[in-house]
Computed example of a mutant assay.
Amino acid sequence: MLNVKVDADRGLVILEPDGALTDNDFRLAAQLIDPVIEKAGSLAGIIIRTRSFPGWNSFAALVSHLRFVREHHKSVKRIAFVTDSPVGSFAQAIGNHFISAQIRHFTFDEFEAARRWILFGE
């Protein structure tokens, strides 16, 4: 399951995986996020917060995840990976080559720092 919190006024989305990600998780996330992007033109950022990366429950879920990234990365200014998983550092290193948004890794306990970076560039 993917918990999605949308702060439309600030253009901030918080994604918190709770267990292996499913194909449907990304469709539901897009349904919540797309109207905000449509209204504002972009998001200030997305925070992906999880202590450890849960993976996907199927190949279809991985494909949906990649499609979600492809369809949304140009509409997001910053992406913060807030996790103690090594995936956060990997995502920052690799993502910066393929995603137009700025990407930064924070430890799980640095949520507020990630939020300030997304909203204020601190």
Rank of each mutant, 00 (worst) to 15 (best):
residue 38 E to V: 10
residue 93 A to Q: 14
residue 46 I to Y: 04
residue 82 V to E: 05
residue 104 R to E: 11
residue 9 D to G: 05
residue 49 R to S: 05
residue 30 A to R: 15
residue 13 V to L: 03
residue 8 A to F: 00
residue 106 F to Q: 00
residue 14 I to Y: 02
residue 44 A to F: 04
residue 72 H to L: 12
residue 105 H to F: 07
residue 99 I to N: 00
residue 94 I to W: 00
residue 47 I to N: 02
residue 103 I to G: 14
residue 71 E to S: 13
residue 78 R to T: 04
residue 108 F to P: 06
residue 63 V to R: 10
residue 26 F to W: 15
residue 101 A to P: 09
residue 86 P to W: 14
residue 76 V to W: 03
residue 85 S to P: 07
residue 17 P to Y: 09
residue 51 R to I: 11
residue 85 S to G: 04
residue 73 H to K: 05
residue 93 A to R: 13
residue 16 E to Q: 14
residue 102 Q to C: 06
residue 28 L to V: 13
residue 59 F to K: 13
residue 104 R to L: 04
residue 39 K to C: 02
residue 72 H to Q: 10
residue 50 T to C: 13
residue 98 F to W: 06
residue 87 V to C: 05
residue 90 F to V: 01
residue 80 A to Q: 06
residue 86 P to Q: 13
residue 24 N to F: 10
residue 35 P to V: 10
residue 78 R to M: 02
residue 73 H to D: 05
residue 90 F to Y: 02
residue 94 I to Y: 01
residue 92 Q to R: 10
residue 105 H to R: 14
residue 89 S to D: 10
residue 47 I to K: 03
residue 54 P to Y: 12
residue 67 R to C: 11
residue 66 L to H: 08
residue 10 R to F: 03
residue 55 G to S: 12
residue 32 L to P: 05
residue 61 A to K: 08
residue 91 A to W: 00
residue 10 R to N: 13
residue 86 P to C: 08
residue 67 R to S: 14
residue 43 L to F: 00
residue 11 G to V: 09
residue 53 F to G: 02
residue 68 F to G: 05
residue 10 R to C: 07
residue 68 F to L: 08
residue 105 H to K: 14
residue 71 E to G: 11
residue 109 D to F: 08
residue 96 N to F: 06
residue 92 Q to V: 05
residue 23 D to L: 15
residue 100 S to W: 06
residue 46 I to A: 04
residue 58 S to A: 04
residue 102 Q to A: 15
residue 28 L to A: 12
residue 100 S to A: 11
residue 95 G to F: 05
residue 78 R to A: 01
residue 90 F to D: 01
residue 103 I to A: 06
residue 29 A to W: 08
residue 74 K to H: 15
residue 26 F to D: 07
residue 64 S to V: 02
residue 8 A to S: 04
residue 31 Q to D: 15
residue 32 L to M: 15
residue 55 G to E: 13
residue 26 F to M: 13
residue 7 D to I: 01
residue 73 H to T: 09
residue 53 F to A: 04
residue 98 F to G: 02
residue 59 F to N: 11
residue 11 G to M: 08
residue 72 H to I: 12
residue 93 A to P: 05
residue 75 S to Y: 11
residue 12 L to M: 03
residue 75 S to A: 13
residue 74 K to N: 15
residue 92 Q to F: 06
residue 44 A to W: 08
residue 43 L to Y: 00
residue 39 K to T: 03
residue 71 E to L: 13
residue 64 S to Y: 01
